[in-house]
Amino acid sequence: MKDATKKVGPARTARTLWEGVSLRVDAGERVCLTGPSGCGKSTLLNCVGLLDTLDGGSLSLLGADLTRASARARMRVRRHDIGYLFQDYALIDNDTVEENVALACARGGVGRNRRRIDEALEIVGLGGRQKDVVYQLSGGEQQRVAVARVLVRRPSIILADEPTASLDRENAALVLDQLARCAEQGAAVLMVSHDPWAADHCDRKVAISQ
């Protein structure tokens, strides 16, 4: 991202959320975006994740300029190269744990990807919980399912929006450890957090101001 600008609100009365933002995250690096509520950290994350668009500047991912990419091209990159940990976990409540994780697999469902799904669930401490229905899980367990969904995809870029919010220290540490593991395997990790403890687990902090 270089010299990026983002505005919010109707065009005639739009307010500049941030401008002139340049950010680089290398493979294997963990970067945390910090700053006060309302400064646009999550919006910046969404722009990097191709869920939102910039109003100025440029965005390149994995060496490709995606500033003005088509909707189809953006979807292809999101599907194959980006793993996203949302604040609300973005799980399907009435589906099982394994069905939710299988959604991240490029091809096939649970049957075709069972080994990968089982391995990912073992890593996050949910081995043997494949058939549990998501709405019956605790918040910490649901976040771990979301992490397993990222692990099974093996993305080049991981975006995490407040990944430890509302988690106890044990579950928060597990999530951060898995993000570190992904970075060690070559993923670029960009995280938003209000938690100084979580931010300290990253290699670098970048402050966004209003």
Rank of each mutant, 00 (worst) to 15 (best):
T5N: 06
K6W: 09
V8Y: 14
P10K: 03
A11C: 03
R12Y: 10
A14L: 11
G20N: 13
G20V: 12
G20H: 12
R24G: 01
E29L: 04
R30K: 14
C32S: 15
L33Q: 06
T34V: 15
G35L: 09
G38Y: 09
C39Y: 11
C47T: 10
L50A: 00
L50Q: 10
L51T: 13
L51N: 11
D52P: 10
D55W: 10
G56I: 14
G57H: 11
L59A: 11
L61F: 11
L61H: 01
G63H: 01
A64D: 10
D65Q: 07
R68D: 13
A69H: 02
S70N: 11
R72D: 14
R72A: 15
R76P: 09
V77Y: 06
R78W: 01
R78E: 09
R79C: 05
Y84Q: 04
F86M: 07
Q87D: 01
Q87W: 08
Q87S: 09
Q87F: 00
D88K: 04
A90Q: 14
L91A: 04
L91R: 05
L91D: 11
I92W: 04
D93V: 09
D95M: 15
T96C: 07
V101F: 07
L103E: 08
A104I: 01
A104Y: 06
A106H: 14
R107A: 14
G108R: 06
G109P: 13
V110R: 02
G111L: 02
R112W: 05
R114Q: 14
R115K: 12
R115H: 12
D118E: 12
E119L: 03
A120M: 00
E122D: 15
V124A: 06
G127F: 08
R129Y: 02
V133I: 15
V133E: 05
V134W: 09
L137D: 07
G139F: 03
G139S: 00
V145F: 05
V145P: 02
R149D: 08
L151G: 05
V152Q: 04
R153S: 12
R153C: 03
A160T: 07
P163N: 00
T164N: 01
S166I: 00
S166V: 07
L167Y: 03
L167C: 05
L167Q: 00
E170V: 13
E170C: 08
N171H: 00
A172K: 04
A172F: 05
A173K: 07
L174G: 07
L174S: 14
D177G: 12
A183L: 06
A183R: 04
E184G: 15
E184R: 10
Q185W: 01
G186A: 06
G186N: 00
A188S: 05
L190G: 13
M191S: 06
M191W: 03
S193R: 03
W197R: 08
A198L: 01
D200M: 02
H201Q: 15
D203A: 01
V206C: 09
V206W: 10
I208L: 15
S209M: 09
